[in-house]
């Protein structure tokens, strides 16, 4: 058995609030992800999914428990991961090329090599011809492709993806999911993928983790044994898929309702 690349051990996270109390966002979360696996986390909004990724990337530090990455305790920002943010995180003052190259230049890759690698990734995500465009000149889907290239260009072994496609229209999202799956099939990176869309989670993943409404805890984990390679266009209509879906939805639904009730 290989050692997990991502390991959360009894992690709790409390945020200070204005009134002086602490808001408990995560409570005693333990999760291991083995190398090369595609794992999704689903849960109602506000349940701590983004917080979990930030903890793994070392952008935040837990108030309790430990986070381990590739056998080392996370005590600093982790530059060995690739991180796709939920929000638009491209540098608006850099062109597509500049954005994709940035990570390489920060890592002291010589400019010429950085440019070649960036150009090849720009082509790979289907943006050839847009190298010198600025983010504001691109559609939402194109900007996500730039983010993907920006993340993959330095070849991280672990990808943390925070609802990367949730802001896209359905057609674009289907396309991007397919492309992501093809890339993953080829590159075999460890992916921790966050979504609030259960269908997306099942279709892409080896395992789906359901989180509870705040404070976020792990409610259940479901291995997804659909055959690979998968065709995302057909997979959703298969009886197997539907069985898994209704099984998990039962659990998720409770949490969504709980979260909804609380927000009323």
């Amino acid at each position: 058995m290989s050692q997990p690349v991502i390991s959360l051990r009894h992690v709790s996270m409390a945020f200070p609030q204005h009134n002086g109390d602490a808001f408990l966002a995560l409570q005693d979360v333990s999760l291991d992800v083995d190398p090369g696996r595609f794992v999704s986390i689903v849960g109602p909004s506000g349940c701590g999914k983004s917080t979990t990724l930030s903890l793994i990337a070392g952008l935040l530090f837990p108030t309790d428990g430990e986070v381990w990455l590739e056998g080392r305790r996370v005590e600093d920002v982790q530059t060995s991961v690739g991180f796709m943010f939920q929000q638009d995180a491209l540098f608006p003052w850099k062109t597509v090329l500049g954005n994709v190259m940035a990570g390489l230049l920060f890592r002291q890759v010589p400019r010429k090599e950085a440019q070649e690698r960036a150009l090849s990734w720009i082509r790979r995500v289907g943006l050839a011809g847009f190298e010198h465009h600025y983010p504001y000149q691109l559609s939402g889907g194109m900007r996500k492709r730039v983010s993907l290239a920006q993340t993959l260009v330095y070849d991280p072994d672990i990808l943390l993806m925070d609802e990367p496609f949730s802001a896209l229209d359905v057609q674009t999202r289907d396309l991007m999911e397919n492309e992501l799956l093809a890339l993953w099939q080829e590159l075999r990176k460890t992916v921790l993928f966050i979504t609030h869309d259960l269908q997306e989670a099942i279709a892409l993943s080896d395992e789906v983790v359901v989180m509870t409404a705040a404070p976020g805890r792990i409610k259940a984990r479901y291995p997804i044994q659909l055959a690979r390679p998968r065709n995302l266009l057909d997979i959703r209509t298969s009886p197997e898929f539907e069985a898994i879906y209704s099984h998990i939805w039962g659990d998720l639904r409770e949490e969504v309702m709980a979260s909804y009730a609380r927000s009323q």
Partner: peptide, 9 residues
Amino acid sequence: ANARILGAR
């Protein structure tokens, strides 16, 4: 945050 993960000093 993005810049830091991308390796910015």
